[in-house]
Design a protein around this nucleic acid. Structure first.
Length: 176
DNA sequence: CTGCTAACCTAATCATGGG
DNA sequence: CCCATGATTAGGTTAGCAG
């Protein structure tokens, strides 16, 4: 194959796992700052930390421990639907018009960019690769949701499941 | 081959910021 | 206030590697 679509599988060392598991047991929903700190500690990317926590929460029934204290503020305490984690999210990325143009153009030719394409794109518009990935995820999702708006035409789904096979390698560069 | 688990996906939802 | 859209989550699939 020309290149790998996926990022290569990260192999955590025992030491790294120890730190991660310990952190997980104390706080299964780390905020952005905590993830960044952990990333530094185990010397890896923060996006790897995020994926690791996602997978861990999904597969291990961690002690339903929302917070070590956190007891609903009965006043109104609307536990229904609120982020378990702290309000510590990554700040919203605001894309400039030209950045959006680049992303949209790429999306048209390849809505499922592999790791190489995403990294190249990220470098091009000066944004972390993880943001590019999220952007594509949201874009695809939105497209599927709103596709029910225009009964026009198009809406051609190729039943493409799993096998994405498409790799960037788009030497674009034509322009400029 | 099987089990574990990183990477990745969708859909839903939370949350922010501009009109 | 409301809407467009970025960030996060649950849960499910794909795939690399050790046993």
């Amino acid at each position: 194959m020309p290149a790998k679509c996926r990022r290569s599988r990260t192999k955590f060392t025992e030491e790294q796992l120890k730190i991660l598991i310990d952190a997980f047991n104390q706080k299964p929903y780390p905020g952005y700052a905590a993830k960044k700190r952990l990333a530094l500690q185990v010397n890896t990317e923060e996006s790897r930390i995020q994926i690791w926590f996602q997978n861990r929460r999904a597969r291990h029934q961690f002690p339903k421990r929302p917070e070590e204290h956190l007891d609903a503020r009965q006043g109104r305490g609307p536990p229904a639907g609120q982020t378990p984690g702290r309000g510590d999210r990554r700040s919203r990325t605001s894309y400039t018009n030209s950045q959006l143009q680049t992303l949209i153009e790429e999306f048209k030719v390849n809505p499922y960019p592999g790791i190489d394409s995403r990294e190249k794109l990220a470098k091009e518009i000066g944004v972390p690769e993880s943001r590019v990935q999220v952007w594509f995820q949201n874009r695809r999702s939105r497209q599927n949701t709103q596709k029910e708006r225009e009964p026009g035409e198009a809406v051609d789904q190729g039943q493409n499941q799993g096998q994405d096979l498409r790799d960037g390698t788009v030497q674009g560069t034509a322009t400029t």
